[in-house]
Design a protein around this nucleic acid. Sequence first.
DNA 1: TCCTTACGCTACGACCCGTAGCGTAACTGT
DNA 2: ACAGTTACGCTACGGGTCGTAGCGTAAGGA
Lengths: 209, 209
Amino acid sequence: MLSPGHPEPARTGRPRSAAADEAILEACRASLVDLGWSKLTMGDVATRAGVAKTTLYRRWASKNELVVDAVAVLFDELELPDLGSLSADVHNVVLQFAALLDRPETRTALMAVVAESTRDDALRARIRDSIVDRQKRLVLLGRRRAQQRGELPVEPDEATAASTADLIFDVIAGAVVHRTLVSAEPVDEDWARRFTVLLLAGLGAAAAT
Amino acid sequence: MLSPGHPEPARTGRPRSAAADEAILEACRASLVDLGWSKLTMGDVATRAGVAKTTLYRRWASKNELVVDAVAVLFDELELPDLGSLSADVHNVVLQFAALLDRPETRTALMAVVAESTRDDALRARIRDSIVDRQKRLVLLGRRRAQQRGELPVEPDEATAASTADLIFDVIAGAVVHRTLVSAEPVDEDWARRFTVLLLAGLGAAAAT
DNA sequence: TCCTTACGCTACGACCCGTAGCGTAACTGT
DNA sequence: ACAGTTACGCTACGGGTCGTAGCGTAAGGA
């Protein structure tokens, strides 16, 4: 949204249609599936949503921001049930994340907005808030559980604890994304198992130093 | 290039200007730096290169393919000197790859063309041939050296050997790309060291299973 | 009821796309 | 030297998208 109005957006006048919001985001996802990123146009999204093109521009300043919002909700599907061991939790989240990247609307949109964000700090912040942080939560949660089980040591230093979490996050998410989108090969049960073995052994060694 | 002419391209007539080729690719990289991916236009590249716009279309069918070729040569800079240990080799290649992704023309172009390739098989093949395989060579070389040093076991099965190499490649490249472009934090000496420790320990464990 | 804001619609200039057509330049084989 | 072939620069064009402005109307709040 365009500056969602910090405390009090606007009390008077006709309120914005929440139904239109959802219709636009849904139409944007559908358009991504059919047309992909480069051929997606604001006019097409407006037509699919049954709203005027001007309504889109009243809410989103650019195609980039619209697509980020449209795709962000999909990352809410990610969950991390307690499967009893760090190994099982990692294995599970890898497969979940891979399944998300198998969807055409996410696989084409995610890399495109990341590419744009290299030149647009505001867009990068939006991606961080609505997509990246939602994934990172899972890493932090899984790590906390593993520490409670005694599978991972509790780091005394706060700073190194944070950078370790960042490292784990980049390794997991990076490997799955690279496997799926660059190497273009499937993240199947076997790959997830091998990756999990590699990561867990690495974590044990990283903790020792 | 557009179908580089398999054995004998064309013997007669005026030959294509090799100088124009290089001028176009150079202009494309410069335009990427100044404008980024989304605002880059074929007309702008042509103007910078001092050629007509039609000349671009005679050689590249689309902006995507032009950018892939323009960026591909940068990946030739990657080298893997024998530093005496697998640890040192991994550490070195991580920093090299990160330095490459620090350049504005690569960081914006790489993700953009990968995003487009999710809907274009021909583009994906081009990326694989001119970019991905050039990186993967380094992984295979480093692995071979480590096996000769006795740091890594020689896998008996050819198929598992290949999939192990793929796994390593996706972990290394994926983590560096994700750290640089998604998390948007620097791959410095300390990060490279921690990552190397994690990976090497993981490789040892993965080999044991 | 008045005020304020959102909405749909139309129209618009600006820009980029990708191609066609033409005359000219460069190189090859006879 | 000459004809044949291909590349190049240039201009022009229809088609599409962009993002905005202006208008009349719809929907809520004081």
